[in-house]
Design a protein around this nucleic acid. Structure first.
Length: 418
RNA sequence: GGGGGAAUGUCCCGAGUGGCAAAGGGGGCGGACUGUAAAUCCGCUGCUGUAAUGGCUUCGUAGGUUCGAGUCCUACUUCCCCCA
């Protein structure tokens, strides 16, 4: 990144909070942002039913855009998902059916509304499905209108294509066309909404630059691109994966408690960076939290968890998650807000094999895993390590009406008779 | 169209002479140490089951040879390379 001193509120914020990896025409964009509301967009893939933490950084970029007086457009890739982005993939993506894509888009919409204000106002966010124009394109029309602006020579130089070829992995023709579709999107948004900025992860740089060039060439209008660094933890792991899988944003796919835990377990070295990227806290407050040393940095992690959870799931859920965590980890007690698993009272009275219970409660994937877990000393019943997964858990194990079952120190489930 | 090669534990990479539930690594999980951190060390990492020997299902797909097949044979699928 160049050491440009930005004048616009938007770019100053973006730079200070660490969102910027690369920008096209920085001075020109800066000037445009000073002049008035700028419309910018980010596209999202509709391959999964929920967005995950990996998408969060770009959603936050749109939020910053709106916060600094500009207009964000969320474009859901109904059309592009039908094609499949080859960027960063060695393997051809599975093609989704139209129905799957529709369902995924509907489900993703909920998350965007938590971070952006939608509406008809000048700086209100709007959500657009690119299927609207992409699926209407006839092949010949597409080739004549857009195909003429792209040379194969140039396309072969883009990483998404080059890497695949270098590794001798197949790249299908449909994937090869993806970048044209994305460029077309940008052009279409520019024409329909006067959108001049496309943002995205650094892996999107090639695709974004294509769109910028297309607009500048075809319409002789200004257009800009901005990418964020790929997010990884300071120990190098990819962000957004945890034990159970992806960190989803939809509450029905990942509970607010688990979401809170995800942030609470941030590595020391990432706390400051994440506070800047994922919370609205002022920078001086973040600087103070970041400076905490040793065990005190845990306070900063709690702030991070609270803020991040509040933004997505609301004040009440964040408070509940925080309270449950405090009860479980700091006071050693129980909280009704911990994840629970219900069993029939009659079954419990008859006795349920511990291994079966652990599997049913989601603490182990199979009985064998539960057994191994127990042998390794990681399975706890009411805080007592239980080496024998064959023992029966009965009503006698109830403490205050529940059995506290834990796999390791962090995964806790309360078993409730019903 | 002709010739050569590849596909392995359904997370990934990857070794594998006919006796293999299959080396090693990454990742993941658990334990110890800590601060619900990182690093480090130890254990586990197909399903099922026992106090234990076990049973079942796995090496692209389908057949075959064999007491026994990831390993040999045949066909098929997909991919890569070379020639046309």
């Amino acid at each position: 990144m160049t050491e440009t001193a930005f004048k616009s509120e938007f770019l100053k914020t973006m730079q200070a909070r660490g969102y910027i990896h690369q920008v096209t025409h920085p001075e020109e964009l800066d000037a445009a942002c000073c002049k008035g509301p700028v419309t910018g967009y980010i596209g999202y893939d509709a391959t999964a039913p929920s967005l995950h933490v990996g998408n969060l950084i770009t959603i936050m970029m749109l939020r910053r855009l709106q916060q600094t007086g500009h207009k964000p457009i969320v474009i859901v890739g109904g059309g592009t998902t039908k094609v499949g982005d080859p960027s960063g993939k060695d393997e051809t993506r599975q093609l989704r059916t139209a129905e799957e894509i529709e369902a995924n888009i509907a489900s993703q919409k909920q998350a965007f509304a938590k971070f952006l204000t939608f509406g008809d106002g000048e700086t209100d966010a709007i959500l657009v499905n690119n299927d609207e124009w992409l699926s209407k394109l006839g092949y010949i029309d597409f080739l004549r209108e857009y195909g003429v602006h792209f040379t194969i020579n140039r396309m072969l130089t883009f990483d998404s294509v080059k890497l695949r070829l270098e590794r001798e992995q197949p790249l299908t023709f449909i994937e090869f066309n993806y970048m044209l579709m994305q460029a077309t999107d940008f052009l279409e948004l520019e024409r329909r909404y006067g959108c001049v900025l496309q943002m995205g992860g650094s892996d999107q740089w090639g695709n974004i630059v294509n769109g910028v060039d297309l607009i500048r060439r075809v319409d002789q209008k200004p257009a800009f691109g901005l990418t964020t660094p790929l997010l990884s933890t300071s120990s190098g792991a990819k962000m957004g994966k945890t034990a159970q899988g992806a960190v989803w944003l939809n509450a029905d796919m990942l509970s607010p408690y688990d979401y809170w835990q995800f942030w609470r377990n941030t590595e020391d070295g990432d706390v400051g960076r994440f506070l800047k990227l994922f919370t609205d806290l002022p920078l001086d407050e973040i600087a103070r939290l970041e400076a905490l040393q040793g065990a005190e940095i845990n306070d900063a992690k709690k702030v991070l968890a609270n803020e991040a959870t509040r933004m997505l799931h609301g004040e009440a859920e964040a408070a509940k998650a925080a309270a449950a965590a405090q009860a479980a980890f700091e006071l050693g007690g129980l909280s009704a807000d911990l994840p629970t698993h219900e069993v029939a009272r009659a079954d419990l009275e008859a006795g349920v094999m511990l291994a079966d219970l652990a599997v049913a409660a989601g603490l182990a994937a199979s009985k064998g895993e539960a057994r191994r877990l127990a042998q390794g000393g990681g399975l706890r019943v009411n805080d007592k390590a239980e080496a024998d997964a064959n023992r029966a858990v009965t009503a006698a194990d109830l403490v205050d009406g529940v059995v506290k079952l834990a796999a390791g120190k962090k995964k806790i489930v309360l078993v409730k008779p019903v």
